[in-house]
Design a protein around this nucleic acid. Structure first.
Lengths: 205, 205
DNA sequence: GACTTTTTCGACGTACTGTCGAAAATCCAC
DNA sequence: GTGGATTTTCGACAGTACGTCGAAAAAGTC
């Protein structure tokens, strides 16, 4: 699964190195964009030679994919109540968006780099497509439920609408210097996209 | 302005070459992504050596910027009626979005490549920022006008809302295989973002 | 036909990527 | 602990693409 060419089994010295590479990548991503990071740096950070790097990962992208996978779990965190609920529930939506915004704040370069690299890089594109599909799937189901219940007006196909909402989130967070500051407005906008202004609320602060 | 290092004036042989480079770039972008295009190919297409390429452009990016500038005029085309009008006018919005979708259909690789390269590439980032600012400016003004006139409900700051709409367009068109198919749904969604469902309309087909 | 400007290109230096094969370190059974 | 297998390391090499320099050829000017 995770593109490791050489190793067979056994948590040995190599494991420490692999983790060191990942940690180095994280550290470097905290202060420079993905495109500016070279394999030399990754190897140096893990205190191995550049050639040795290739024993652990096939490429810089493979490292990124590993980091992304580590994060996948967190990405949908706190979205359950919103996605499984019904009606224009601003609070559960706000919780979902806040969790996402915090993640973007902490990992913006990793996420931005991944999004930028996705076209033209199948493994990353697949990762993104998987997350997107999962979100669209659940959100579209929620929209259909609400429409059937008369809570939401008809409109674009539920999957299309859900896709637009997913796109909007990614674009908005990717472009923002302070993602958390956007949460309130995104709540309003997403609710309007789904409910019109059935559910308009008055954001506090 | 357009980063031309060598030439002084006079429409000479060099002009043909410069145009040849741009045409080659256009042609290549029609069938492969920007990242896969090399300066060798650009030079070969214009029938000059790679070194000669640098006489005309500073880099591949400079070529892209030139192409983008050629296109800037078309980007806002047919948006006037929508941006200068008032109220939930689905038809003028549809016209604006259709023109944009057609542009995306024809130049998707150039635009997608530019958007992907923008972070980490100041000249392209500036181009994008300029367009975005212009759009946000006019759209925000329109929103404020409508709110003052009681045509649109209060909500996120007009500039923020306009920014989200601009982001949504870029993300939606960038991700779509058939941008024109999205226009109808985008009309609905943008109107809802601004007006709630004050202005819900019934899209035909 | 000299003189200037424009245009061309080969040679060079750099940065980064990825592969190969041999050696060193480590592990494991006996 | 020693011998053979496995894991890990790295130097050397080959490839690709970028961007610069300076000298020369081509074109334009008087």
């Amino acid at each position: 699964m995770s593109t490791l060419p050489g190793r067979r089994r056994g948590p040995s010295k190599g494991d420490r190195r692999e983790r060191a590479i990942l940690e180095t990548a994280r550290a470097l991503l905290a202060r420079k964009p993905l495109a500016d990071i070279t394999i030399d740096e990754l190897a140096a950070g893990a205190e191995i030679s550049r050639s040795s790097f290739y024993f652990y990962f096939d490429s810089k992208i493979a490292v990124v994919v590993a980091l992304l996978h580590d994060m996948s779990g967190d990405l949908g965190r706190d979205s359950g109540p919103w996605l499984d609920g019904s009606g224009p529930d601003a609070e559960s939506l706000r919780a979902a968006l806040t969790a996402l915004a915090v993640l973007w704040r902490d990992q913006s370069r990793l996420l931005a780099g991944a999004l930028a690299a996705a076209p033209g890089c199948p493994p990353i594109a697949q990762w993104r497509a998987g997350l997107r599909a999962a979100h669209v799937q659940r959100l579209a189901a929620r929209i259909e439920r609400d429409r059937a219940a008369g809570l939401a007006p008809a409109g674009p196909g539920a999957r299309v609408l859900a896709g637009l909402i997913d796109d909007l989130r990614a674009a908005a967070f990717a472009g923002a210097e302070d993602p958390e500051a956007l949460v309130g407005d995104l709540v309003t906008v997403e609710l309007r996209m789904i409910y019109g202004n059935f559910g308009d609320h008055h954001p506090a602060g």
